[in-house]
């Protein structure tokens, strides 16, 4: 199977999934529509009507981790091709990546010491 066929299959799978969902919705729709009633469309909050909108500038207190995550996620993009040829390259690959990971890990330790690894 060529690569292109494989991705065509994956696209077909995606479209098929959307089709499945639409047919489930159609089936549910055949049973009836939701009846509009007072307060029914207000988000449920434990028996209290809360009509205030909640879309706000949300305080994500994990932003320290999030910044470190960016660095690590970039690094992982390099790791995959390295991992595949690792045994071929042998000790050199271990040393190459060892130095890279050591620096990255030192970065993590530095961030840790500066208080990045906590809820801000």
């Amino acid at each position: 199977m060529s690569e292109l066929t494989q991705y065509a299959i994956l696209l077909g799978l995606t479209l098929g999934t959307v089709g499945l969902v639409l047919s489930i919705y159609a089936l549910a729709r055949a049973i009836g529509r939701a009846r509009a009633e007072p307060a029914k469309d207000v988000p449920a909050t434990a028996g209290t009507l809360a009509r205030d909108p909640v879309w706000v500038r949300y305080h994500a207190k994990y932003y320290g981790y999030a910044l470190l995550f960016l660095a690590f996620d970039m690094e992982m993009a390099f790791m995959y091709p390295w991992a595949v040829v690792y045994r071929e390259e042998g000790l050199v690959a271990l040393l190459d990546m060892g130095v890279f990971l050591a620096i990255l890990f030192l970065g993590l330790l530095y961030g840790w010491s500066q208080g990045a690894l906590r809820r801000q």
Partner: peptide
Amino acid sequence: GPNGAYGMVGGWRFLGQFIAYAM
């Protein structure tokens, strides 16, 4: 999407959870 307090907190919490598990 629903503009409800519990859902919004849940969604952003999952972002934190993602940062924890992704690596």
